[in-house]
Amino acid sequence: MNRQKVVRRNNVHLIGDGARTMMLANGFGCDQTMWRYLVPRLPECYTLVLFDYVGSGGSDISAFDPHRYAALEGYARDVTEICEALELQDVILVGHSVSSMIGLLACQANPALFERLVMICPSPCFLNISPDYLGGFEREDLQELLDLMERNYLGWASFLAPLVMGREAPQDMIDDMAKTFCSTDIRAARVFARATFFSDYRHILPDARHPTLILQSETDALADQRIGHYMHERMPGSKFSLIKGEGHCLHMTHPADVADRIERFCDDRRH
């Protein structure tokens, strides 16, 4: 796909013009505005690439294909297509929640495009799977979550794209994104929710080849500490880093700490 098409389809925004490229991929239930607290804290040596998956934020909803996006591989293709169309190289891919696994899929499908991977509050599988994997939830719990989100439909706009811009977001980001609020398509959100909560990608962990940082929240109802450890044990070349914080959105609640740890991890190669 050509650059223009991809930029329009995924509402791609570039911030800064640093020498290194860092791509930020949001998790389920939001769009790129979710990075607004982290972005100002990342150093200027990066060109930041922000985008929305098809069906959320300011993406081109007409490009939504329920078949393609029924599995995380479809979203991983969005990621690699953006990298290819923009001719990005040595990309540092930062994924929140489900985008951690989407990022890993993208890294495995096109290893040459990516330099390293940062996973914020990841989980390879949210379901408890007998005999011994505890993803944290029974299928009924997650079904109920989808159901509850659906019943929150009237509030979904605010639910999916956390309300107004925070005070700290840079002005140009506010201008660019002001019009993208509340435009998440419910049909696309449903498909994405299913792909997120009912999938199991544990089997791809041992094939990880890129240096990976796992940022684990101390208390996270969606991705418990033991899941972070589970991933770290199975992913060659991974680093585990615990952030003393609460919640599943560390990049929103602890942006300074997250930025600091990403920075240190990315500086590694120079030492």
Binding site: E144, L145, G247
Partner: peptide, 12 residues
């Protein structure tokens, strides 16, 4: 809270 509501509490 139910588990689903806990997720909403925590992540939103």
């Amino acid at each position: 809270l139910t588990p689903a509501s806990c997720i909403i509490l925590d992540s939103f």
